[in-house]
Design a protein around this nucleic acid. Structure first.
Ligand SMILES: [Mn+2]
Ligand SMILES: [Mn+2]
Ligand SMILES: [Mn+2]
Ligand SMILES: [Mn+2]
Lengths: 150, 150
DNA sequence: GTAAATTCTTAGCCAAGACTAACTTTTTTG
DNA sequence: CAAAAAAGTTAGTCTTGGCTAAGAATTTAC
């Protein structure tokens, strides 16, 4: 009854579904997962390399201070990606392990792709660390195909 | 004299210069500029398309609410990228225009590259919106070369 | 030219993610 | 094993970037 064609007012969606806006919203949503992704990937690596993941090692590899790690780990635990006890090293849950695996795969593909494209290893590593969080499965498939070219 | 091989203790850098850590730090630094980059690029577009950039249009295209835009514009003004008067539309400074131009260029190259690689336009637009902030000049050059291939 | 609609700002809330300083726990070492 | 060192946590600060609710300014419509 009341509602009608009153220009941009509340119709259906909470916000105008400009396809452009959607892209930005996607990016924002991807950004919210970046940290968790980098952490679990790193934790998996540390466990693989050293048998355990100590906060001090995480801090060093992430390039942040210890309290930053403590807080981040609290969030990861809250999200069910890790388990931990005070003053002890960190373990991945099943869910965390799955995410770590997925992230590692993406990281690897993006890295191999960039190197295949002709980039030096150093720069490739840096760019991959950022790009990996913003490639769709579709893009990833194309990257992989290119990297695996004969 | 005193200092020696005492494991990780304070040597020189404030933090261990793990090359891995550097990559993460780079990504964090890139992330701090993302918002400004997307805004100035968008503002430039709006001015080009409609002759002016109104906050309401910015909000719609960014997919955020009006107060978010107000705050963001305050930051951009503080950083010298835009000028504005209350209740009026937004203008880019020389610096803002330069950044917008640079961002547009990057965006275009990444987009063309993804499409050239075989991605559909829709997905390409989405991925480009995220990736564009994490490609080094070196990578961009490779993307461009690939996109311009005969 | 006033009333209604739209636009914009302000105030205030919240979570994330960084930091330092200071304290506690654990580990190492003489 | 006691002292020192290292690792980890807590408390508290700051900025960013999102939001809602409410009010002010501007624009549009009658
Ligand atoms: Mn990463
Ligand atoms: Mn990674
Ligand atoms: Mn973008
Ligand atoms: Mn862009």
């Amino acid at each position: 009854m009341t509602c009608d064609s009153s220009s941009t007012a509340a119709t259906d969606e909470p916000r105008p579904a400009d396809s452009r806006a959607e892209a930005f919203q996607e990016v924002r949503s991807a950004r919210r997962n970046e940290l968790a992704e980098d952490y679990v990937e790193l934790i998996a690596e540390l466990i693989h390399e050293h048998g355990e993941a100590r906060p001090v090692a995480i801090a060093a590899r992430m390039g942040v201070r210890a309290p930053t790690v403590t807080k981040a780990l609290d969030r990861l635990a809250r999200e069910g990606l890790i388990t931990r006890e005070r003053y002890r090293s960190v373990f991945l849950t099943e869910k965390g392990r799955a995410l770590a695996h997925e992230c590692r795969r993406r990281h690897e593909i993006v890295l191999r792709f960039l190197i295949r494209l002709g980039l030096d290893a150093e720069t490739a590593e840096r760019d991959a660390e950022g790009i990996e969080h913003h490639v769709s499965e579709r893009t990833l498939a194309l990257f992989e195909a290119y990297a695996d070219q004969v």
